[in-house]
Design a protein around this nucleic acid. Structure first.
Lengths: 168, 168
DNA sequence: ATATATTTTCAATATATTTTGAAAGTTCAA
DNA sequence: TTGAACTTTCAAAATATATTGAAAATATAT
């Protein structure tokens, strides 16, 4: 397969994949493009290669920077800003985990803790079902939270080593 | 906090949470409602409690059934169908993992494997960056895939005891 | 300072997704 | 069978989300 064709396929699939996981298609595509590009790109490069507008590129790159997945690069003697993506998969994964945990999981766990304090008879069937469901989700969430925390702090070789033992 | 209020909060938050993860708000809300309901509900119950149309309820419940998260229940001597959700958090989580893996991760890994076969000089900077990125993602994905497989086949105590210890 | 290159903003527009509701389809008891 | 109860479908409408592009803001060279 030719490089150009493979690039197109990767970008397009990464965009679709992102959509399944609540990430907007264009942002995922820009991320894909930057990951597979050997050198940093300008906004114009991205506009041209993905066929999207300047405003769109600008907004989504800004978002990617907020996610910690893309960095601004200033080349000496150049007026334009360049952008580059982290290329190490482990770092990308842990960065995404870190951010999603902070933005989504942590607030959800906080809310669930509050919802367990219900007025009334804990033996009442309806109260019991509610409290049991919420506390079940919260307990699972807390375990996941701890596991993800450890993952984020670990390095890849340690993660792979652990998995090797697991599958011996 | 009153039960009714807590239910509302839970349903609303679960809907928002779902949205972050590529699940439509209504489907997540119906799932939430069924999880916290002690008894099976009819389509009309769901319509009334969430204030949504019959068609919407019907479609989303059908989807939840396809995800393996909700079951049809026929009560003897009743014309109407009732619906109930799995209440065990571990089972819910592994079911979701199983489905998403099958629908999303597995096809992505298959594609990535193909994209590694690029014509041309593997020492060329651009080809190298592409192949390295794709293979890095694929390797990580394969590890995740194996770990998730193991999780799906295991029971909850394995997760609580064995896996977490691994990451100490 | 001024002109020019570059980035950012955001209201308008376009696109995609979700929801509705009524009609068609199905089931089942009599 | 018939018809009442119930479920499913799907085109149209509503809503939500993403995109554009030109103007405003900002940065830099001369």
């Amino acid at each position: 397969m030719k490089l150009a064709e493979a690039k197109q396929q990767f970008i397009s699939s990464w965009g679709a994949f992102g959509t399944d996981w609540g990430i907007n298609r264009t942002m995922a595509q820009i991320h894909a493009l930057l990951m597979i590009s050997a050198d940093p790109l300008t906004q114009d490069d991205v506009m041209e290669q993905l066929g999207i507008s300047r405003g769109n590129v600008n907004m989504n790159i800004r978002d990617l920077i907020n996610w910690g997945l893309v960095d601004r690069v200033i080349l000496p003697g150049e007026r334009k800003e360049y952008f580059t993506a982290e290329k190490d998969t482990w770092k990308i994964a842990t960065q995404i985990i870190k951010e999603r945990k902070k933005r989504e999981l942590d607030p959800m766990l906080k809310l669930l803790a509050q919802l367990e304090n219900i007025d009334g008879d804990k033996k009442d069937k309806h109260i019991k079902q509610f409290v049991d469901t919420v506390s079940g989700i919260r307990k699972f969430g807390k375990q996941a939270d701890q596991l993800l925390d450890k993952m984020v702090k670990a390095d890849e070789s340690w993660f792979l080593g652990g998995l090797l033992r697991l599958f011996k």
